[in-house]
C-alpha cells in the first residue's frame, strides 16, 4: 500500500510550477525530498493536500484510490497529514480546541464544538510533553506568537491527533535546535515503525542525522531530477545543487 503521485503537473494561471512529477511513497518507509528554495517542494505538498489555488493535472492515489479530485478535508480524513512549513495564524482559536475538533471529527465524522472530550485534553498534555512543550501551550491561540520551533512541534502534535496513514513534513527541521530535531527525528522513526509512510521535505537535511531514509529524491525547477538512496544526501552536501542545473 502506498501513496502514489503520477504525472502531476501544477500551475497557477499561466505559470507552471510542477512538471510531470511521479513518485511512490510506501507505508513503513521514509522518503526525503531535497532541493533548493523555490524549486517547488512546498507546492508539491500543497497540491497533494489539495490547495484550491492550483490547476492540477495527473493523479494522486492513496492506497489505490484516486484522491486528486477530493476536497482537502476528505483527503485528510482518508489518511493524509501535512505538517506545514509556515502554518497560518488563527486568532481566537485555542490549541486545545483545535485538537479537540480534530479528534472528534476523526472519530465521529462530525463536529460538535460544544462537546469537549477530556480524554483528548489529557492525551494532548502528554503529547506536548513528548515534543518538549509545556502544558500551558493548550491555552495559546493557534500559531500566534509561536516561535519557529514551537510551530514545528505543534504541527507534529496535530498530526499525531489525526493519526494519518501518510505524513508529509514540510521542513520539520528548520527553526529547531539540535535537541528539537532529535525529538522530531525520534517521533518520525516511531511513526515509521508503526507502518506510516513519511515524506520529509528538507532544504538542509539536518534531520537525516537522526532519520535514516529509505529513499532520497532531488527536486529542482518543479521536476524530480534524481532518485536514489542516502548517498544522495552526501552528494548534495558536498557539491550543492549546482550539478543538477542544466
Amino acid at each position: 500500500m502506498a501513496l502514489e503521485v503520477l504525472n502531476l503537473s501544477v500551475s497557477i494561471g499561466e505559470k507552471e510550477i510542477l512538471k510531470d512529477v511521479t513518485f511512490r511513497l510506501e507505508r513503513g518507509e521514509t522518503t526525503i525530498l531535497m532541493g533548493p528554495n523555490g524549486g517547488g517542494k512546498t507546492t508539491l505538498s500543497f497540491a497533494i493536500m489539495g490547495h484550491p489555488k492550483y490547476n492540477v493535472s495527473g493523479k494522486i492515489l492513496l492506497d489505490g484510490e484516486d484522491i486528486s479530485k477530493l476536497p482537502t478535508h476528505e483527503r485528510a480524513l482518508k489518511g493524509l497529514g501535512l505538517a506545514f512549513q509556515n502554518p497560518v495564524e488563527i486568532p481566537g482559536l485555542r490549541f486545545s480546541s483545535l485538537l479537540n475538533a480534530i479528534s472528534i471529527k476523526k472519530r465521529t465524522g462530525e463536529l460538535d464544538m460544544s462537546k469537549i472530550d477530556p480524554k483528548v485534553i489529557v492525551w494532548a498534555g502528554r503529547k506536548l510533553g513528548e515534543v518538549g512543550l509545556d502544558r500551558s501551550f493548550l491555552e495559546r491561540e493557534v500559531n500566534i506568537g509561536f516561535s519557529g520551533g514551537e510551530k514545528k512541534r505543534s504541527e507534529i502534535v496535530q498530526l499525531m491527533a489525526m493519526d494519518p496513514k501518510y505524513l508529509i513534513l514540510d521542513e520539520p527541521d528548520s527553526g529547531l535546535d539540535v535537541d528539537g530535531i532529535k525529538i522530531i527525528g525520534n517521533i518520525v522513526n516511531g511513526l515509521k515503525a508503526n507502518g506510516k509512510g513519511i515524506l520529509i521535505i528538507t532544504h538542509h537535511a539536518e534531520i537525516t542525522k537522526f532519520v535514516k531514509p529509505d529513499k532520497v529524491m532531488i527536486m529542482l525547477n518543479g521536476s524530480i531530477v534524481e532518485e536514489g538512496g542516502a548517498e544522495l544526501i552526501e552528494k548534495v552536501e558536498s557539491r550543492g545543487y549546482k550539478g543538477y542545473e542544466r
Binding site: 482537502t72 497560518v88 488563527i90 463536529l111
Partner: peptide, 25 residues
C-alpha cells in the same frame, strides 16, 4: 483561503472550520 486550507488539512470542512473559528472567537 489559507486558513480554510490549513483547517481542511486537519479534516474539517469549510463550514466546520468557519463555525469552529467563529465559536472560539
Amino acid at each position: 483561503r489559507n486558513l480554510l486550507f490549513y483547517l481542511g488539512s486537519r479534516g474539517l470542512t469549510e463550514e466546520e472550520s468557519t463555525s469552529l473559528v467563529l465559536y472560539e472567537k
